[in-house]
């Protein structure tokens, strides 16, 4: 499959707007539908029960996830100009086109492979929380490093939207990012925005809706590890995984995580619950469902205590 071609069958996919966000939105079919949706946005604050879709906000620290979250829910999640401001999950909701969306603001993480505690909260939610759409908020001024987590997310789920945030700063720094080309390259919608100034929120909303409802069929780009030692070692593990857990999606990602000694994956293999979304979710759900402040943090047990 060629990552450069969008499925022609997708009915009127919402084309990401490629202009810098500080210019007026393009006029045309897309702009119209965007505005129709905008009128329908109802910020629901914390009333997140009985939602039709779940949206996760993922991305490097300090890229504007909480800012986007606030814009969509009308809540006032704390925002601050330093990495690590958000350390637990926050949930809110919005409604558009008669559908209700639960949206989850996650702590920032540099990659889905790291295992610092607040980063695991984010990763676990993407892996087991079953989001319908994952919005990866990306810093346009540090695109290269930010793309790593986008590519990793695309290994786990194809239902991804990239929010190309901080376009105002990119412009000030003389960087211009071709959102349309990026979207073609990744096979997913890419929305340029400046969330702090309210720019691009409407387009992001439109992209979330079209991916959630399936109106935009993504064609997720997958990274090739080449033909080296890694691929040679991954393949038998992937075959074994397919045998043990038939129907398991993302065997390559799971195999890679096992090779990297990922504890929660190894535990899931031991318990035989790997890929059984319900069992795995049941294990993490108490953590994910209750107030993050109370329960997502296991006891701190330094050596000295025993």
């Amino acid at each position: 499959m060629t990552p450069n071609s969008l499925p022609a069958s997708a009915p009127a996919p919402v084309q990401p707007v490629a202009q810098p966000a500080n210019q007026p939105a393009a006029h045309g079919a897309c702009a119209t539908c965007v505005h129709a949706r905008h009128d329908a946005l109802r910020r629901l604050g914390v009333r997140a029960e009985a939602a039709d879709f779940v949206v996760a906000l993922l991305g490097n620290p300090n890229t504007g996830k909480s800012t986007v979250f606030n814009a969509l829910t009308g809540l006032r999640q704390h925002v601050g100009n330093w990495p690590g401001k958000t350390v637990s999950r926050a949930e809110g909701a919005f409604e558009t086109d008669g559908k209700k969306y639960r949206i989850v603001d996650l702590p920032g993480c540099y990659s889905l492979c790291s295992s610092s505690h607040h980063e695991e909260i984010a990763r676990d939610f993407i892996l087991f929380g079953g989001p319908d759409v994952t919005v990866v908020v990306v810093d346009a001024t540090r695109l290269e490093r930010n793309l790593v987590i986008v590519l990793q997310t695309l290994e786990i789920t194809g239902r991804v939207v990239v929010a190309l945030n901080l376009m105002d700063e990119a412009k000030r720094r003389g960087l211009s990012v071709d959102a349309r080309a990026l979207s073609r390259r990744l096979g997913i919608p890419v929305v340029p925005m400046a969330a702090r100034h309210g720019k691009g929120i409407d387009d992001l909303l439109a992209a979330i809706v079209s991916v959630a409802t399936g109106a935009y069929e993504t064609n997720p780009h997958r990274v090739h590890y080449g033909n080296g030692r890694l691929t040679a070692r991954l393949e038998p593990i992937m075959r074994q995984l397919e045998q043990l857990f038939p129907g398991l999606p993302n065997t390559r990602w799971v195999a890679l995580r096992l090779l990297d000694k990922d504890h929660s994956m190894i535990q899931a293999v031991r318990e035989g619950t790997l890929g059984n979304i319900e069992a795995m979710t049941a294990r993490v759900m108490p953590r994910l469902d209750t107030d993050a402040l109370q329960d997502d943090q296991p006891a701190l047990v330094p050596e000295e205590r025993s």
Partner: peptide, 11 residues
């Protein structure tokens, strides 16, 4: 290990 991973993450 983790330290190496962290530095790779940071670029």
């Amino acid at each position: 290990g983790a330290e190496r991973r962290r530095l790779l993450d940071l670029g």
